[in-house]
Design a protein around this nucleic acid. Structure first.
Lengths: 199, 199
DNA sequence: CTTTTTTTGTATCGGTCACTAAATAACTCC
DNA sequence: GGAGTTATTTAGTGACCGATACAAAAAAAG
């Protein structure tokens, strides 16, 4: 209602590209997790000094929130695509898990999922809440999407898929190769394919 | 070959129970992960001062190594039991995954698996190497155990089971309830049950 | 121009990290 | 007893953590 985007009417203009800074920060968070990246490291990677970072994003967590939103909007597209283009629950789950396995090992310097693993063992409760909120949103989305294809309890199906994705993300972070992840994803999906009470 | 256990022949005797200290440290590491527990916190929980900890264990990583060994010897027994008592590959996998789901949510204040999640996003490469070494040993053990029941490539089966367990551990750490974990474990096992070329 | 607003860099804050030098305390051996 | 050995404590190291006070710099508004 007030000002969603400051148009910079007066005062010294910002010396760095704000959205590019978010993407750089996102890359670092994906590599090392929230606790693994320091404000000093972030500032240096962004080519600015810590006070500029705090002026632009409030604090480290504020920058993380924007990075997570960018991540969900860009790297998370495969979720909607895999589920939306499916004609059955089994196809949706299969597409999703295979796409997740592919996505989690695409960038080899930052494997796994930021939402599922970016704040694991993290001491900052705000950062954990940020990823957990996104995880719950994903679960809700999957539950609704699955319900288009089935009258079953799609909540437990969403739980299952997210736990499988957690395994794939964790394995990717451990360095497991693409073929191994894909093999596991196919087995995870096969467990659903054999269930026959789909409609 | 030299001295595996110092019998304390001379000098001031230790004022604390060394193996009890390892168990206390293990509990903290399970709760917070390696990076989440500090030497000061460990010392206070053990009722000693940091120099006593360093005198007894060398450094934080030395204490972690002993904690991991204790964990593997006690909390990891279910792996051998689940696999050893099985009469088929399918039964071994099913027993193992269900037992893992139970184990990962048994202690509600320290859910998940120390080996699989204790050093995630950890900055200490030695600590990561310690858990990764244990993970590889487990994979090798499972591969051999599975090969007693199948002529298939049991290496990829061990990979699959470990990735599934990684998902269960991560979900347990996120606070997923026992029933959810057990449901996912049954589905993970069902994917193997349907594969028919077991023997 | 001056005033106002916003961003910038310099320098630093208090706190925590893993770790340790040095002195003392408690034990065995002689 | 004294000598030797080991564990203990006190006190503190330098490095890093997230976050900031302050003033100079750079823009728009009057």
């Amino acid at each position: 209602m007030t000002d969603t985007k400051k148009e910079h009417t007066r005062g010294r203009p910002r010396c760095f590209d704000r959205s590019a800074a978010v993407k750089t920060a996102l890359s670092l968070f994906r590599q090392k997790g929230y606790d693994g990246v320091g404000v000093a490291e972030l500032s240096q990677a962004l080519g600015i000094k810590p006070p500029s970072l705090y002026a632009a994003f409030g604090n480290k967590h504020g920058l993380f929130v924007e990075a997570v939103r960018t991540y969900a909007a860009e790297e998370g597209k495969f979720i909607g695509e895999a589920v939306g283009g499916a004609n059955s629950l089994e196809e949706a789950v299969t597409n999703l898990l295979i796409a997740a396995a592919e996505a989690f090992c695409r960038c080899k310097d930052q494997p796994g999922c930021l939402i599922l693993d970016g704040t694991r063992n993290c001491m900052d409760s705000n950062a954990r809440a940020t990823t957990e909120e996104m995880r719950q949103e994903t679960k809700t989305f999957l539950k609704k999407a699955f319900s288009r294809h089935s009258s079953r309890d799609t909540g437990e199906m969403a739980d299952y898929v997210l736990i499988a994705m957690t395994g794939l993300s964790g394995a990717a972070r451990q360095g497991e190769k693409r073929e191994v992840l894909l093999g596991a994803a196919r087995r995870f999906a096969a467990a659903i394919l054999q269930e026959e009470d789909s409609q």
